[in-house]
Design a protein around this nucleic acid. Structure first.
Length: 553
RNA sequence: GCGCCAGUAGCUCAGUCGGAUAGAGCGUCGGUCUACGAAACCGAAGGUCACAGGUUCGAAUCCUGUCUGGCGCGCCA
């Protein structure tokens, strides 16, 4: 099954031919559409890259190569014109015969076009979102979810074996505070004069949790929440976080994100893994006592300063659990560990690397993509978000507001390395100003045409000539495998979104210039293949970023 | 002060393993529906790619320095 770009065979043939002529081997040949379509369909800088080694004038080499291409092995019949331009570029115009074959190949490959390019395929564990189950996921989590899941889908499509994991921070002081907050709200529901602790969770959603718990246990704890004893706090914390976690997973599933595993921090503490991790660090000399505390010598692995693992009061830090967690993960045998973190955690990277290295694993297996912050604008003004003021926009509210398709597309449209403002007015619009619909509309339009077109393209020969918009559209389709490869290598789903915008634009332009139904058999056959190929790539691409590809809108 | 990310059109951002005249969406202005979906298309206006040096046939892209913004720098998580 041909899953690579139809340009690749041309590129190989060109490299062979050029190397022969220049008398020196070439490693890389760039063969791609030129910036200006007037130059032709494809352009190559091969003569310029060979000029140095061959010690010859680039233009002279280019002329020689250009002159031989029409009869070259693997190129004959495909090259209509080859011209030398500028400092030594060779501009190629391809024949309708090549275009017809390429369109057909892509259409027939369908969903497999661009798939399975991983080299080599790896077993990859990707951890993302990983929030405290003490509040509903917000817009920042949504961005991390859209990013992490997009990366996971792309890696899987490329041929990697991917596992999605969510680390649940269900242990420690914040859980105690959460339990106390829920207990207080529960007491209030029963009419008791209990106050939520000052440092506790004040958000309205805590009431929802408390109501659910009252429905479960009635007034059984009426006499024990003011003040609450340790057992009561533990109960409210445990039940509260379970309810909160189910809310999160429900939101995430609605967002089309499913995890293969949820890993509880508490199990690390209760199962002794945290203690064993610290012992291991002490044993290997990576941890030491100082001023009553236990320190991790992360500076030995490039960190700015050493970090505390166990406080002088005997309690362990968050890092201690993360040591255990990452030793666990590294020990599972994956080729690669991806930790997707928010920008406010980037200072953690060196520590995590230190854990992996101290555990005796190659620290290179750990990758930590950082997702920058997202803010919202509405009516031209920044929407101030604050947890305290309760103005924080939740993931659920975002989905209610702009829909899942728009949310996923917008949140993944920009590089994860860039902080950006999501304009709610644009994202909310159901009309032509919304980029999501721009791509989806192209898909629906094609579905509409194909529904009216004859079932099979038939076996007609290539069309006599091509419209510029047909050339552009097909050449853009040829770029899909490369777009996937870039997205995979750079862990950048936004490249898929950008590509789809380009493809949709080229399709819409084609649509306005070329008819399909009712054309002569050769033209009809080519255009049907072009439509099928375009629809397939759009559907596949949208799928990789978790957006639906509707046949009607 | 140190570290990470960024600075590209009025706004939000692509493009950054060096390539020809730097792009898209939104916004503005002007055109296009009696043939497959106008949620679309075509055209126009809009740029010292933060600044200054350097590397070379060629720099938004690579190097050095400066300025500006976000985030971080805890025996918090």
């Amino acid at each position: 099954m041909p899953t690579d770009s139809p340009i690749t065979p041309l590129s190989r043939a060109l490299a062979r031919e050029a190397s022969g002529i220049a008398g020196t081997a070439t490693a890389m040949v760039v063969l791609e559409p030129p910036a200006n379509a007037e130059f032709g369909d494809l352009a190559t800088n091969v003569a310029m890259t060979l000029a140095g080694a061959a010690k010859r004038n680039p233009r002279e080499i280019a002329e020689a190569i250009a002159g031989s291409l029409a009869s070259a092995d693997g190129l004959a019949g495909y090259i209509e014109r080859a011209e030398v331009a500028g400092p030594g570029f060779i501009n190629l115009t391809l024949s309708p015969r090549w275009f017809a074959g390429a369109a057909r190949a892509i259409a027939e490959a369908g969903d497999d076009y661009g798939r399975g390019q991983a080299d080599p395929p790896e077993r990859i564990l990707i951890e993302f979102v990983s929030a405290n189950p003490t509040g509903p996921p917000h817009v920042g989590h949504a961005r991390q979810a859209a990013y992490g899941d997009g990366v996971a889908r792309i890696l899987g499509y490329a041929g990697h074996d991917v596992t999605r994991e969510f680390y649940v921070n269900d242990w420690g002081r914040q859980m105690e505070l959460f339990g106390a907050s829920v207990a207080a709200r529960y007491g209030q529901l029963l009419g008791l004069p209990v106050e939520v602790p000052a440092e506790g969770y004040q958000g309205d959603y805590v009431n929802g949790i408390a109501e659910a718990m009252r429905d479960e246990v009635g007034d059984a704890y009426r006499d024990r929440v003011d003040p609450p004893d340790a057992e009561v706090l533990a109960f409210f914390a445990a039940r509260g976080q379970a309810l909160m976690l189910s809310t999160m997973t429900r939101d995430l599933e609605r967002f089309r994100v499913r995890f293969d595993a949820f890993f509880s921090e508490t199990t690390l503490h209760e199962g002794g893994a945290v203690e064993r991790g610290l012992e291991a660090l002490i044993g290997s000399g990576d941890a030491y006592e100082h001023e009553g505390a236990l320190w991790f010598r992360t500076t030995a692995y490039g960190d700015e300063k050493d970090r505390v693992l166990r406080r002088s009061d005997g309690s362990s830090t968050y890092l201690a659990a993360d040591v255990a967690y990452h030793l666990d993960k590294a020990g599972r045998g994956d080729d690669r560990l991806l930790d997707v973190l928010g920008a406010d955690h980037h200072g953690y990277i060196a520590r995590l690397r230190a854990v992996v290295a101290a555990g005796g694993y190659d620290p290179g297996i750990l990758e930590v993509p950082i997702v920058q912050l997202v803010s919202l604008t509405e009516g031209g003004e920044a929407k101030r978000m604050s947890k305290r003021a309760g103005t924080l926009v939740t993931m659920g509210e975002l989905m209610d507001d702009i829909g899942v398709d728009a949310a996923r597309f917008f949140l993944v449209q920009r590089s994860h390395e860039t902080a950006f403002d999501l304009d709610l007015d644009v994202a909310r619009a159901e009309g032509n100003e919304n980029p999501v619909y721009y791509v989806q509309y192209a898909h629906a339009r094609i579905a509409g045409i194909l529904a009216q077109a004859p079932g099979e393209p038939g076996d007609a020969g290539p069309p006599p000539d091509l419209d510029p918009s047909e050339r552009t559209l097909l050449l853009t389709l040829c770029g899909w495998p490369e777009a996937v490869r870039e997205a995979e290598h750079r862990r950048s789903p936004h490249r898929v979104a950008s590509y789809l915008m380009d493809l949709a634009r080229d399709f819409h332009a084609f649509y306005h210039r070329c008819r399909v139904v009712g054309e002569p058999p050769d033209v009809l056959a080519f255009r049907l293949h072009l439509l099928r190929a375009t629809r397939s790539v759009i559907a596949t691409g949208l799928g990789l970023i978790g957006v639906e590809a509707p046949d009607r809108m």
